[in-house]
Design a protein around this nucleic acid. Structure first.
Lengths: 221, 221
DNA sequence: ATAAAAAGTTAGCCTGTCCTAACAATTATT
DNA sequence: AATAATTGTTAGGACAGGCTAACTTTTTAT
């Protein structure tokens, strides 16, 4: 029954590692909303079980075993999100919390069946890659919209976060994955961009928003 | 996180109550595979939370609150089973264990969406009624095949258990819910019945099997 | 270089969920 | 009615997963 706890520790370690390159106890505690001593004792436990290497005062490191375990949880999460969106008519802004619960369901066959029904998609509804059955994951490392130049034409590939407020904001702007975005103007004083796409012209996006959008250059119209 | 534990206690109490009419600590312990002292202390805790009434040496009783909670867990379980069978191509013998996990997913909206997609079915794949959103459940109390007489024609309405071995056995006999069954012969010495239905004639079912099949009389051909 | 801030550690405690051992009450059997 | 079997209770302990308080180490900023 306490599986869920361990899974949440591993998954969050994996994500912190990807994001910051180093897993500090405080970062983990912040994500999991537990105190640092709690993380500390759990880290020792996970060390004893071979999921992480823990040395006093040093950042945590996931072992191979820990990384695989974590990637498989992320796989379940992303398959679930995709299933919810494609087969159950949920909006991309609704699925994160539901998948957060579903990822802990202990049933290999359930997720493999969802995957099959979906046709083994490579990405989840937010453009994040779905790890394979062995926990291997292809990172594509797209640049962010905020790094592009005036006049660039880009394609929206993925989102930095799947926070529901942010997704609702994108819904409001009618911005979807795959959108062809032209950058009309960049305000140098605040980094905001005025862009156009599909049936929308002259939409202004703040720097924060531009930093949360992963894009691919698709210049020459 | 310990939600799951409480839910399993309540659900199993509900089922024991339905089956035996009285909830003993030992029966509960047996089902949950925990020791009697463990059940005892949990019973006190659930009493303090208003889910059951507990008095020393007396059988447990679910309160209104406890019954509703339990029925809603059963609702989630049965909706999940139906979804797995009807929308995800699982066999009726595969879904019990998966639903056992899914029922603990904390997401009202997920189950209501499944229900909607299914068209609000009244029964699960094994013929058990699905409680409504308020935890009300319609018990239909069909007789068992074993109570019928030679010459009777009945319709298979529901199963007493959803044990996967039993379901596989029924698959082997090509027996499905809704089947029209004619009782050709009853052996008085062991209660076994020879029946026919659909494209099967002269199938022999043991007394144990006949006791696990709920039927409706559908005489006069 | 040192002081302040941040991060990590340890000790000690709490609650939930489980256990065994020893005993008490209830129920069933003769 | 007495005894045996079953069922329930209590005491005491273990472990997971959480906490605060007090302290140490490391990092950052002056």
């Amino acid at each position: 029954m306490p599986l869920k706890t361990k899974e949440n520790y591993l998954k969050n370690m994996y994500m912190i590692d990807e994001e910051k390159g180093v897993i500090s106890l405080s970062a983990l505690g912040k994500r999991l909303r537990v105190s640092i001593p709690t993380v500390n004792s759990m880290a020792k436990r996970l060390h004893n079980n071979g999921f992480v290497t823990y040395e006093k005062y040093k950042p945590l490191k996931l072992t191979k075993k820990g990384k695989k375990e974590a990637a498989l949880i992320i796989r379940r999460h992303r398959i679930a999100e995709m299933f919810l969106v494609k087969k159950m008519n949920f909006g991309w802004e609704e699925v994160h919390d539901i998948a957060e619960e579903m990822e802990h369901v202990e049933s290999e066959i359930l997720f493999e069946r969802m995957n099959e029904i979906l046709g083994s998609p490579a990405f989840d509804p937010h453009g994040s890659p779905i790890p394979d059955r062995n926990g291997n994951i292809v990172l594509d490392n797209y640049p962010r919209l905020s790094e592009m130049q005036e006049g660039d034409m880009v394609k929206l590939m993925a989102l930095y976060d799947d926070n529901s407020e942010f997704l609702k904001f994108l819904n409001g702007k009618k911005l979807k994955l795959g959108a062809q975005i032209s950058i009309n103007k960049i305000e140098s004083f605040d980094g905001s961009m005025t862009v156009s796409y599909k049936n929308e012209s002259e939409v202004t996006l703040s720097r924060e928003v531009c930093e949360s959008l992963f894009v691919k250059l698709a210049n020459e119209k």
